[in-house]
Amino acid sequence: MAVVTGASGGIGAATARRLAKDGFDVVAVARRAERLRRLAEETGVRPYVLDVTDGEGVRRFAAELGSCDVLVNNAGGALGADPVAGADVADWEWMYSVNVLGTLRMTQALLPLLRAGRGGTIVTVTSTAAFTAYEGGGGYSAAKHAERALAETLRLELCGEPVRVVEVAPGMVRTEEFALNRMRGDADRAAAVYEGVDHPLTAEDVAECVALAVGLPQHVNVDRLVVRPLAQAAQHKLHRGPLFGD
């Protein structure tokens, strides 16, 4: 069984689809019931409405599961693009709560099930912001740095147990909501993020990376898989213009 959080859209939904295609019994977890229902009708995954920041809800969810072989901590997001000097503290609190504490709650709650099987895998979807800061990204980068630290520490603490800890760190991914949510619904600002970039990553690209790491033999651990579009050589080095012909 595989549990995927943040599965109502973007990378989470694409990962749920990809793991279901690989034969996993997938439990798709997210806050938006209607989107989960449509995903379940499309793919056969099991929907579960849950906010990963709700500690009691997470514990109740874990108690209802009979087993868990794979946990994909994908729920997260960015809010705001203000400089540190003018940032809204509430935005930082939200990003830390969802990206870091949500991952912590899910990991703690499902770890006994992951340990109980013949071998478990925890995949945490972070970001290249987890190791490179950039202007306007202080809150998101801080949250993703913390999420990366969580994964690295957990890997050390589980050494000697058959549970893999994998980090997948995407660069620029174009999904329908990430930039739009970050820019508080400003479609023009969201579109400008990707303007002129030839083939940003898609949610499906990242899902393929998750599936690759999960599908390797249990003795093979991908500590960190960094994936970017070809147009993005680094967090601060982005080519805007054509790369590929027709």
Rank of each mutant, 00 (worst) to 15 (best):
V52E: 09
D54P: 00
G55N: 09
G55T: 08
G55C: 05
G55H: 10
G55A: 14
G55L: 11
E56F: 04
E56M: 05
E56A: 13
G57K: 01
V58H: 03
V58L: 08
V58P: 08
R59A: 15
R59L: 13
R60C: 05
R60V: 10
R60F: 03
F61M: 07
F61R: 10
F61G: 04
F61V: 04
A62Y: 06
A62G: 06
A62H: 05
A63R: 15
E64L: 03
E64A: 11
E64S: 14
E64K: 08
L65D: 02
L65P: 05
G66A: 15
G66W: 07
G66D: 14
G66N: 09
S67R: 15
C68V: 14
C68Q: 04
C68K: 02
D69S: 11
D69H: 01
D69L: 05
D69I: 04
D69Y: 00
V70G: 09
V70R: 12
V70M: 10
V70T: 09
V70H: 10
L71K: 11
L71D: 13
L71E: 13
V72M: 10
V72Q: 07
V72L: 14
V72A: 13
N73S: 15
N73Y: 15
N74K: 01
N74L: 06
N74F: 01
N74Q: 04
A75L: 05
A75S: 09
G76Y: 02
G77K: 04
G77L: 12
G77Q: 07
G77H: 07
A78F: 10
A78L: 06
A78P: 00
A78Q: 11
L79K: 08
G80C: 10
G80W: 05
A81G: 03
D82C: 03
D82K: 07
D82L: 04
D82W: 01
P83K: 04
P83G: 06
P83W: 05
V84A: 15
V84P: 13
V84G: 10
A85S: 15
A85Q: 12
A85M: 15
A85Y: 08
G86H: 09
A87T: 13
A87G: 14
A87P: 01
D88A: 10
D88C: 04
D88K: 13
